[in-house]
Amino acid sequence: MDYEVIFTNIHLYIEGLWVTIQLVFLSLVCGFVLALPIALLAICRSPWIQIFPKTYIYFFRGTPLLVQMFLIYHGMGQFEFVRESVIWIVFKEAYWCALIAFALNTAGYTAEILRGTIEQTPFGDFEAARACGMSKSTMYRRIILPGTFRRALPAYGNETIFMLHGSALAGVVTIVDLFGAAKVVNSRHFVPFESFITAGFFYFCLTFIIVSLFKKLEFRWNAHLRPRKV
């Protein structure tokens, strides 16, 4: 075992860690913003409206993230009209390609989580809100969605961890995230075990932090479900 090269290259890992955190955070935020309207469309009763959200969710949950990322990163370059247009500034950068792929992917999963949770809202909540004379939008804003977020929290925590793990794929398309850093160290010094186990250690710590953050959040948001102290 040769951990000396790990310590001399630790700055690479730290930089990679920062890139990973950025990617995960930004894709979660963008993904969530995207997921909300998709979930709301998905619970519409009209089958015509449902086609779009259902297809979206089916595609992004049914295919591997790696393939989605390759479709965007390698695939977009196939089309001349994309390469010639202004949006190529975005697709030109591996970072943005990965971010777009991650955001679209997590939006699919998050939308499905939200849809499921909204549909499980106790009917009494709707009735009570309507009895108070709330309009549909007020009802969703004040009653349904807050309750949904609260109940979706554990599932969303899992999705966050999946996103963190999925973000390692960024290292496959030239981005130097945590996994990318491990690849660079490995290819320069030929220490596969040490370099990847170090990346694994960082990911493990990140997972641990995320899990405890969500536990704290659940503790606060779901205070009413806590067992009462005797």
């Binding site: 961890i161 963190l164 793990h165 999925g166 973000s167 390692a168 794929l169 290292g171 496959v172 996994f179 491990a182 596969p192 075990f193 990847f196 186990i197 990346a199 694994g200 990911y203 493990f204 997972t207 641990f208």
Partner: peptide, 21 residues
């Protein structure tokens, strides 16, 4: 452990590291 480490990283660890061990 499994839930803490990305599958891709675990796979590379087993592929290279596992062979050496």
């Amino acid at each position: 452990l499994i839930r803490g480490i990305p599958d891709l990283v675990l796979m590379t660890i087993i592929y290279y590291g596992g062979q050496i061990q």
